[in-house]
Design a protein around this nucleic acid. Structure first.
Lengths: 180, 180
DNA sequence: CAAATATATATCAGTCTGATACGTGTAAGT
DNA sequence: ACTTACACGTATCAGACTGATATATATTTG
């Protein structure tokens, strides 16, 4: 999903500024499955303005920079529905951790234990952050998505805890490995 | 992890051509956690050549275009170890499916069931593809990574099967939802 | 009282994707 | 027999996106 469509989707849930969109994507219910930088959000909003898929109200604020609050137009809502009617593309999962694990094994066996410890903490923190989100009110769909995130993070965590011992026996032979 | 480091890592496991690196990343043990296009792999290999972190043997082939088989140099191995000694960055998970679910709810309730059905199939296919990989011989680390992928895909699949009913009761009230 | 954090918009070099081009061999479909 | 698709293999490029940075002020924290 390109950032343009992501912005349309977020605006379909309520008016927002570019800054708020960025926060939602970085910390909110969206954080588990999407990312976007200012460098993509602001140009996307400008383009959506040109295409008249959103409108913008400039809100002068005392003691704050002006806000630009964007709202979806009917054409924007239509465009979003068109996008969502197409089948969603495949997931894209990137993990430096898994890459490091694969490449580090032969290079530095001791590093693996530390890497896994850190990763278990990482997943536990993710779970906590997502569960904190669940305490607020949210739509059925948002709750589903956040709970999905929790389930996946917990599965990752459990796998690491239950399978880390395969790295712990040093100089293990193939025969020994087969026996485990 | 940038593509340059990814190439170094793959070459640390054995010599390869650009084409083979692309295949590994798209279909092999790496497919679960990384991606790379020709448009990033070939320039990365050229740059690694300039930096003398890899060497290249041009293999003339009859009835085939010439192959360029790349190998890691000692400096390349050192550079890889430097990269792996840094803490791995956070995971990056993008899912058009989850985004569509969030945005589609209010727009077209019927679409949700179809979306979830398709997604369950998607995860089941991923599991099968990963389990097929496990039938080949591979290093402890590779096996761990692929099994990690299986665990996560299965968790995603299970969550969808066990929780999809939250979307099925149409016109559900908040009170009803709380009771479930 | 200083430093860090939050609000808010905006730009840009560098990286990466997805598509495309080119050329050949072999397998599958009709 | 013929044509269409796929596998091998290198390479480029427009457009999208990231991560860092700039600018400016208010509030919170140490």
């Amino acid at each position: 999903m390109d950032i343009r469509t992501l912005c349309l989707g977020i605006l379909s849930l309520g008016d927002a500024t570019g800054y708020e969109i960025k926060k939602l994507v970085a910390e909110g219910s969206f954080s588990f499955f999407s990312e976007a930088s200012y460098g993509s959000i602001y140009p996307a909003l400008n383009r959506l303005m040109e295409e008249e898929l959103v409108t913008c109200k400039e809100m002068a604020q005392e003691k704050r920079p002006d806000k630009k609050v964007y709202s979806l137009t009917d054409a924007g809502r239509e465009e979003l529905m068109q996008s969502l009617s197409r089948d969603p593309g495949p997931d894209r999962n990137r993990s430096e951790f898994l890459a490091a694990l694969l490449f580090a094994e032969s290079v530095s066996p001791d590093r693996v234990g530390q890497l896994i410890n850190d990763r278990i903490s990482y997943h536990q923190e993710k779970v906590q952050a997502l569960e904190a989100l669940l305490e607020d009110e949210m739509s059925t769909a948002s709750r589903f998505v956040v709970q999905f995130g929790v389930a996946v993070q917990k599965a990752a965590c459990d796998f690491l805890q239950n399978n880390r011992q395969v790295f712990e026996e040093t100089g293990v032979t193939d025969a020994n490995q087969a026996a485990l």
